[in-house]
């Protein structure tokens, strides 16, 4: 079988398009590269969506944690503590067991005039269940980063906004939020990198890979188990993730440039590596 044929068969295997059976004997390098690359679709899916949704919740959480009102601050603090203080691995298991225990027939919702049945079985699937966990998890980590940035906004900036007569939403949208993002961005870049790395945990933590549709590491460990040779599939995964990391760094670097475009060249903050890893 030629390599082109393999790519046609397996390039979209992880989302269920193409050959149904995974290769079983005579594994070629081309098969491994294609199938592992196909699994990377899931890593990008989980990472990108969790990051996108998590960004908005994180802003809300950071603002809530900085709130002077006890009833708003405490839930945000507990949310952050809960997700940052426990391993992501355990969170995945816990979420999966919770979703499994939901009634299979769905939950009856009584809206007074009409009764609807909310289906729950899709929550036990990785595409939804794991995404929810990753979304809440990254929101907690990012919320803490944003909270730290919020507290280090220079007082002069806020005084200047006050002097211009800005209040409430205008002040937040024009001064506080952009400054917060600018200060948080280097740390947030690292968070994004490690969120993408954390997506490799999904298929090893309770959520089953339905019809063998898994992520990059799932296929790599499939090949390692079948060929009993870890020295080919794992370096392939490593290569893919190094590329993915470089893409993230350059994308976030572009946004960082835009956030800092009003500053003189020398004071611009560069993105630096800080290990804030495994959840």
């Amino acid at each position: 079988m030629s390599c082109l044929q393999t790519i046609q068969d397996y390039a979209l295997r992880s989302i269920g398009i193409g050959e149904r059976l995974l290769p079983r004997t005579d594994f070629t390098l081309c098969e491994q590269v294609t199938l592992i690359g196909s699994g990377l679709i899931w890593n990008v899916y989980f990472g990108a969506l969790a990051l996108l949704f998590g960004f908005f919740l994180a802003t809300a959480v950071a603002l809530a944690k900085a709130s002077p009102v006890w009833a708003i601050r405490k839930p945000a603090e507990w949310f952050i503590f809960l997700f940052r203080g426990s391993p992501l691995f355990i969170q995945f298991f816990l979420a999966y067991e919770t979703f499994v225990l939901l009634p299979k027939s769905g939950i009856e919702l009584n809206l007074g005039f009409i009764e609807i049945t909310a289906a729950t079985s899709w929550l036990t699937r990785a595409w939804a269940g794991a995404l929810i966990v990753l979304f809440l998890n990254t929101a907690a980590y990012t919320g803490e980063i944003f909270y730290g940035a919020l507290r280090s906004i220079p007082r002069g900036d806020i005084e200047a906004a006050d002097a211009y007569g800005m209040t409430g939403l205008t002040k937040f949208r024009r001064v506080i939020w952009p400054t917060m993002l600018r200060l948080a961005w280097p740390a947030y870049t690292n968070e994004a990198i490690f969120l993408f790395h954390a997506t490799t945990l999904v298929y090893f933590s309770g959520f089953p890979a339905w019809k063998q549709k898994g992520d990059a590491l799932y296929y790599a460990s499939y090949f390692a188990d079948k060929t009993f040779n870890p020295f080919i599939p794992y370096p392939i995964v490593a290569g893919y993730f190094i590329l993915l990391t470089l893409v993230i760094i350059s994308l976030f670097g572009l946004i960082n440039r835009r956030l800092n475009r009003h500053l003189p060249q020398a004071t611009r903050s560069r993105i630096r590596f800080k290990p804030q890893v495994i959840r």
Partner: peptide, 11 residues
């Protein structure tokens, strides 16, 4: 930095 730690733990 570039490679997921879980890949190391398996490898």
């Amino acid at each position: 930095r570039g490679i997921p730690d879980i890949a190391f733990f398996l490898f």
